[in-house]
Nucleic acid binder design. Sequence first.
DNA 1: GTTCTAGAAC
DNA 2: GTTCTAGAAC
Length: 204
Amino acid sequence: RKSKETGGAAPAKKRNLGPAWQVGLLKALDDKSTQLFADDRVVVIDDAYKKAKYHMLVIARKDIDRISDVTESDLDLIEHMDKVGRDMAKKRTTDDSVIFQFGFHSVPSMRRLHLHVISRDFDSPQLKTKKHWNSFNTSFFIDSSSALKQLREDGKVSVDPSASQQLLQPMRCQHLGGERDDTSEWVSRWDTKGFARGGNAQLC
DNA sequence: GTTCTAGAAC
DNA sequence: GTTCTAGAAC
């Protein structure tokens, strides 16, 4: 043992990492019981409050808070997170009708860089608010493919300064396009109440 | 991030 | 009266 605390001081205190609710993912890095996969660079867990039938997080072990903090030297890490995420999605279900999306929140609430691996049904009783929906269905959500492209070309991932305002917009479907025709049916099903609750989820 | 809840909206 | 939304949480 090599402890040389001066004056018998208390054991080295851990740096204040912030409020408990912000550091849940940091604890997950050390909690093997919840890990679906782990290697020297990442840990995969189920999102504790999943917003779709399938919703996993690929968490980086490296001390980076968010996608806007990554640099060129992290390209390998982001590529690895993306690959692990896609592998996990394939392992998780063999149902080809399940479509996944992979990406980062522009302004995450939880600390430590994490990649969302989420199925596009958004069928979950824990998807309750407009912000929940918009965090996966506006430019607030940065696809990993887009992040990788930016990282390769610009050496960084730019985040829209107004990204957080996207969370306040009316809920729209990105994939059907058109605000009146195609989405009208979708909006009527999810917009007013219930979201995708009740097992009637479909791709928007 | 969630939970709780007062006040708004219906 | 019930549902919905937005802000505080030490």
